[in-house]
């Protein structure tokens, strides 16, 4: 990031990308359709399961595959758990960006570890889950998993209360966040922002509600919105979204039906979708995560394009930072919540 300053005020800011450009798209175009799933884990490496879902959703749209009901429920449960741990980690990281390296991050990671334990029990890996498959999921839930997930979800609001007691009303946090870099809805839409920071600017747009992908239409949840779109709204929107995710999880853990977890008609190895193209997107924890796939009927994607929310959410970074102090730049960057694996791919 090249920042030009006048005293301590930012007058020009140019982000420089590419230091983690790992050629996801080129590698995926040289490998089979299935081999791209583990690579999607490593895009946004804080939330692998939502990445899996976005890719499989795009492939299912391309090939017209049905997903069994139980698999849809498992996807919703894992996606919302992912959203929880992403937002929790966000709260820790933004405090670290403000200079409070330590306490908040420790609390956040303590809770995150519990969610990672659930992922490990389910998929065998803490971070790189590689769990979803075309037309379903790789394996069924292990015995007792739903109970331990239920316990975690029961206890989660208490943790959020604890975190809020620590942070929300804190004088320093208010001084550092309130009124910093406000954003209007029109600019946010034109700049292509998506996810929590779009809603923090006051736009009512949640892809879970708009596209009704998965079975989200069956669940009752609210879409929180900010009023001025400053850093504080961007912080609070995550706290509120985490609470809504807990509500979704409670409903999903009760309502999950029995049945198969993968569509038996779906072929995994040597999968060849019909020629054509599809764009599939989900509401990831960081924003609209989309995959644009072109198939020429062969066993590997002709074009594999990731729509990275982290990169596109940075479009307005310069606009947000102009006129602020240099110390605010880190906070603004933290409030956008990026992951470099996804920015550079």
């Amino acid at each position: 990031m090249n920042v030009t300053l006048d005293g301590e005020t930012v007058v020009k800011l140019q982000p420089v990308f590419g230091y983690l450009h790992r050629n996801h798209e080129k590698i995926a175009e040289g490998n089979s359709w299935l081999a791209a799933v583990p690579y999607t884990d490593r895009l946004d490496y804080i939330c692998p399961l939502t990445n899996n879902w976005a890719y499989t959703l795009a492939v299912e749209t391309l090939a017209g595959l049905e997903v069994p009901e139980r698999a849809e429920y498992i996807r919703i449960i894992t996606a919302e758990l992912t959203r929880l741990q992403n937002h929790v980690a966000f709260m820790g990281f933004i405090l670290a960006d403000m200079g409070a390296w330590g306490s908040a991050l420790m609390y956040a990671f303590r809770e995150r570890e519990k969610i990672l334990d659930l992922f490990e029990a389910l998929t065998g890996a803490r971070m790189m889950c590689n769990y979803m498959r075309f037309g379903g999921c790789r394996c069924d839930l292990p015995s007792g998993w739903l109970e331990s997930a239920g316990q975690l979800v029961e206890g989660f609001p208490a943790f959020l209360d604890e975190m809020e007691a620590l942070l929300t009303g804190n004088e320093i946090l208010l001084a550092r966040l309130q009124g910093v870099a406000p954003l209007t809805p029109e600019r946010a839409i034109n700049g292509g922002l998506s996810g929590p920071i779009l809603r923090a600017a006051g736009v009512d747009y949640d892809i879970r509600k708009v596209d009704n992908y998965g079975l989200y239409s069956r669940f009752k949840f609210r879409v929180p919105r900010g009023r001025v779109g400053d850093c504080y709204d961007r912080f609070m929107i995550r706290v509120l979204e985490a609470r809504e995710s807990v509500e979704i999880l409670k409903q999903a853990l009760v309502g999950i039906p029995d049945g198969p977890v993968v569509n038996p008609k779906a072929k995994q190895r040597g999968f060849r979708p019909p020629a054509g193209e599809a764009y599939g997107r989900i509401e990831g924890p960081k924003g609209e995560l989309g995959f644009y796939l072109i198939s020429d009927g062969s066993d590997r994607p002709y074009r594999f394009r990731v729509r990275p929310p982290s990169l596109i959410n940075l479009t307005l970074l310069e606009e947000l930072c102009l006129g602020t102090k240099i110390a605010d730049v880190m906070v603004i960057l933290g409030s956008i919540d990026i992951v470099l694996g996804e920015v550079d791919r």
Partner: peptide, 8 residues
């Protein structure tokens, strides 16, 4: 036209 079932 897009021949895929999603017809985008």
């Amino acid at each position: 036209t897009n021949p895929s079932p999603c017809a985008q």
